[in-house]
Design a protein around this nucleic acid. Structure first.
Length: 472
RNA sequence: GGCGCUAUCGUCUAAGGGUUAGGACGGAGCCCUCUCAAGGCUCAAAUACGGGUUCGAAUCCCGUUAGCGCUACCA
């Protein structure tokens, strides 16, 4: 059984880069009938918060991509320590009693990589046991087998064969001096226990993978497949950070801006991946069918935003595409709660769908339905100054009143019949149809821009349309 | 500093030895039209640099440059 995992650490909100990693994991699993495991990597007690955990769930929930199992690393600490002990018992790790080296600036760079403290690595087991028993704090380090192996090799599904000399891999920590497992230890231990077959994660872990291969082997476990993904970066190439780039890095920002989750998922997939057939608009099902690591490229992708315009224009364009191409009944499910939050009520289902069909092609976000589309759902819409100009054209109001009378008397009320009545009236009075059309749109919607005026009439319905004409 | 990864229009990308280097967003223009969108059409816009290999290189190799990542108890 193919099993993938998404392992966020709760140190902030759900980052768009993390969201994309989750999406790629999810797509790969669904593509191959596998399972998705959500694992909260919360071994860093200093930085993890419950608030951040909640916000990560909030982001994941919005994406509407369900996972199959869920774990929390902090609940498995004993297991991690056990597995570190197994490695130690096999003689593949040793205790390092050196005091913590605090300041990163003091690192002795210059002569090459730091590998280990020679006296610690060479310490006899007896002395090590004695000092540990005496309560002296230590870090448990993996003993990289530089004498017996000259390199570590694995094949990455995206980056191809990766090779690194053991002489360039330091004796990394497995357990901290406070007994807590490090990321490397906890992550690999869980990947083994949870029977993860494919590790799909950010490229920032590519060089860590050599260490992980060593751990899997030391544990006697099968080494999973790896697929590293290029990173999402800011326009200047730097990594996206909350401090420097603010809200653009949080997925909830896009939810709040009125994005459809499937549109945002579509957008994120196009950063670093391509179906290679020129398609840009893809539904979730199409994404599942098309996804493969062949289509993932190896260089970082820039999220295109500026301080003035924090939303990538392509993301917005994809949202408009989904808005107008998705099943209108699905769209209704997304618009309804947005209306409710704004204190507006959706009309009956048939009318609602009709309204959506009329206005969806010119809106970009869900929020537009309550701002630009307010007149379709409420009576207290504003008349813009431009709209007032149209109504103040000579004779315009009187013509609208006359039109109201004729529409009330007419046998039918369809786009076509309204158009006929309106054009007849214009012809009889010797005015341009546009005068009445634009004035009608102005009073009906409060705006000079929008759908065909005739479609507005039928979308509003006979009674409401006539009533508004009379109000002119 | 060491090690690893990467480099095609402004941005996202296609082309994995032979194409006028394709598509999309964004930009400019035209058509359509009751307005605004949508839609259709057109235009501008790229192979980081230098060497090789080859009849032929965006594509393979080397170097340079640049960016990113990892680098003594963050994930």
């Amino acid at each position: 059984m193919l099993r993938v995992r998404f392992a966020p650490s709760p140190t902030g909100f759900l980052h768009i880069g993390s969201a994309r990693t989750f999406i790629f994991n999810w797509l790969y699993a669904r593509r191959h009938g596998g399972q998705v495991i959500l694992r909260i990597d919360d071994t860093d007690v200093e930085r993890n918060t419950e608030e951040s955990l909640a916000s990560i769930f909030e982001g994941l929930k919005w994406l509407e991509l369900a996972w199959d199992e869920q774990y929390r690393q902090s609940e498995r600490l004993e297991r991690h320590r056990q597995m570190a002990q197994v490695i130690f018992d096999k003689g593949l790790a040793y205790r390092d009693f050196s005091p913590a080296h605090g300041d990163a600036d003091e690192r002795p760079y210059g002569e090459g990589p730091w590998l280990f403290h020679p006296d610690m690595r060479a310490m006899s087991r007896e002395e090590s046991d004695r000092r540990a028993a005496a309560g002296e704090p230590f870090v448990l380090r993996f003993c990289v087998p530089r004498e017996t192996r000259d390199k570590i090799v694995f094949t990455d599904l995206v980056y191809g064969e990766q090779c690194k000399a053991t002489a360039d891999i330091e004796d990394f920590a497995l357990l901290r001096s406070n007994g807590m497992p490090t990321y490397h230890m906890a992550s690999c231990a869980d990947d083994v226990d949870l029977r993860i077959t494919h590790i799909i994660r950010g490229q920032d872990h590519l060089t860590n993978t050599f260490k992980h291969v060593l751990i899997f082997e030391a544990l006697g476990a099968p080494v999973p497949q790896f697929a590293h993904l290029p990173l999402l970066v800011a326009p200047d190439g730097s990594k996206l950070s909350k401090r420097r780039h603010g809200q653009v890095v949080s997925v909830t920002t896009y939810r709040d801006c009125g994005f459809l989750p499937q549109a945002y998922v579509n957008f994120l997939c196009l950063l670093g991946w391509s179906p290679k057939d020129n398609r840009e608009y893809l539904t979730l099902d199409e994404l599942i069918a098309a996804f493969s690591f062949e289509g993932v490229n190896r260089h970082n992708a820039v999220v295109n935003f500026t301080p003035e315009n924090p939303i990538d224009p392509k993301a917005l364009w994809l949202n408009t595409q989904h808005l107008r191409q998705m099943d209108v009944r699905d769209l209704a499910r997304y618009v309804r709660p947005v209306l409710e939050r704004a204190g507006l009520a959706a009309p009956s289902e048939d009318r609602f769908l009709q309204v959506l069909e009329v206005i969806r092609t010119r809106y970009q976000t869900l929020n537009d339905f309550v701002t630009r589309g307010r007149a379709y759902f409420a009576e207290d819409y504003e008349i813009t100054p431009e709209a007032s100009d149209k109504l103040n054209q000579p004779g315009a109001r009187e013509l609208l009143h006359e039109l109201a009378a004729r529409l009330e008397a007419a046998a039918e009320f369809t786009e076509h019949s309204v158009e006929t009545e309106l054009r007849n009236l214009a012809a009889e009075r010797g005015v341009k149809a546009g005068l009445i059309i634009n004035a009608a749109r102005a009073i009906l919607t409060g705006q000079t821009v929008g759908p065909s005026a005739f479609a507005v009439f039928t979308a509003l319905g006979r009674e409401r349309a006539i009533e508004r004409l009379r109000r002119a």
